[in-house]
């Protein structure tokens, strides 16, 4: 019996949310009187792998060569399922990001394991195994019983903090041969996101709505974002109008985000928008309309014209 956590790397490095994921796995393992095995795929240096031990990984398995460099849902599911079998994992934890969501379903079918996806806190109980997940687009949480002997959890982003704990692991290399017929996705071209901060990864997000009035008015918003080291987002009408790229759309049908700080500028706060951002720890609203619903969701508000308020905020940030 052990807890297996899939620790994905980006160019040979682990991002902060992977350490959060390992911390979560470690706390879950404590509830089960169990240990944590971290699984890394692709090439990662030993010194980087050992960092997983600082957050409680007791064992690190590195599968370097058997997987295609381009991501393939079923091939990756297969490798994780094989390592789960070999290590006798009873709980498998992945991030609720692109690859986690792509791996978990195949894993579930291979192992006949129940999935709790978008889980936002530690298991509520272990007998029965109950997890708490976001439902109705953040308007509620559900306590879900995972009824199978092996359970899969995908952990929602920014829902758990890093906890340091010495796992004293050793790194083991493992070969998992992957049948070529399983690899069917061919990557033709990779278009990395330009230098900007990833929206789903960001601690701070500055977001603009229709109240910004015109695409030419975005400069003060971008300057504030830069001053704060924040990612930028927008509401649906803004991306629909083509004022901003649709990748920036935060909301029910766009990106669901949960930063520590979400600054909504000229956004009225329609239900569909709030569904995508309501898990943010703090929401700041800047809007000319005192009655806009965004102020009901916000902890801090400024009733005023964004064009005047934003430059003053940026200036105050610079003076800090």
């Amino acid at each position: 019996m052990s807890v297996l956590v899939y620790t994905e790397n980006q160019g040979g490095r682990f991002r902060k949310h992977i350490f959060e994921l390992v911390s979560y796995a470690s706390e879950t393992a404590k509830m089960l009187n169990s240990t944590v095995t971290a699984l890394s795929t692709g090439k990662v240096d030993e010194s980087e792998l050992m960092k997983l031990g600082n957050y409680g990984a007791n064992r690190i398995i590195s599968v370097e060569n058997s997987l295609p460099s381009g991501f393939d849902n079923r091939a990756y599911s297969y490798v994780v399922s094989e390592v789960a079998r070999k290590t006798g994992a009873t709980v498998i934890i992945l991030s609720d990001n692109h690859s986690g969501k792509a791996i978990a379903p195949g894993l579930s079918v291979r192992l006949k394991a129940a999935v709790g996806s978008g889980v936002s806190r530690l298991p509520v109980s272990t007998e029965p195994f109950v997890v708490c997940k976001r439902v109705f687009s953040g308007n509620a949480f559900a306590h879900v019983v995972l009824k199978t002997p092996v359970r899969i959890i995908t952990l929602a982003r920014n829902s758990f903090s890093c906890i340091e704990s010495a796992g004293n692991p050793a790194v083991e290399r493992m070969e998992i041969p992957v049948d070529g017929t399983l690899v069917r996705t061919t990557v033709r071209e990779v278009i990395p996101q330009s230098g900007r901060i990833q929206l789903t990864d960001a601690d701070i997000v500055v977001s603009g709505g229709r109240g910004m009035k015109a695409p030419g008015n975005w400069a003060p918003l971008l300057e504030l974002a830069e001053g704060l080291g924040a990612a930028t987002a927008c509401s649906r009408p803004v991306s629909d109008e083509g004022w901003r790229p649709h990748e920036e759309h935060a909301g029910q049908t766009g990106r669901i985000i949960a930063p520590n700080l979400y600054i909504a500028v000229g956004i009225s706060g329609a239900t569909q928008h709030l569904a995508g951002v309501s898990s943010s720890k703090y929401i700041v609203a800047i809007n000319t309309d005192r009655d806009a619903p965004i102020f009901e969701a916000a902890q801090y508000g400024i009733v005023g014209d964004a064009m005047k308020v934003l430059p003053k905020l940026t200036e105050a940030i610079k003076k800090r």
Partner: peptide, 19 residues
Amino acid sequence: LTGIKSFEKPPARDACKFI
């Protein structure tokens, strides 16, 4: 393979502080 046991509403946020 799963079953919903119960639901809960997110905790109410504090009232907005205006600046």
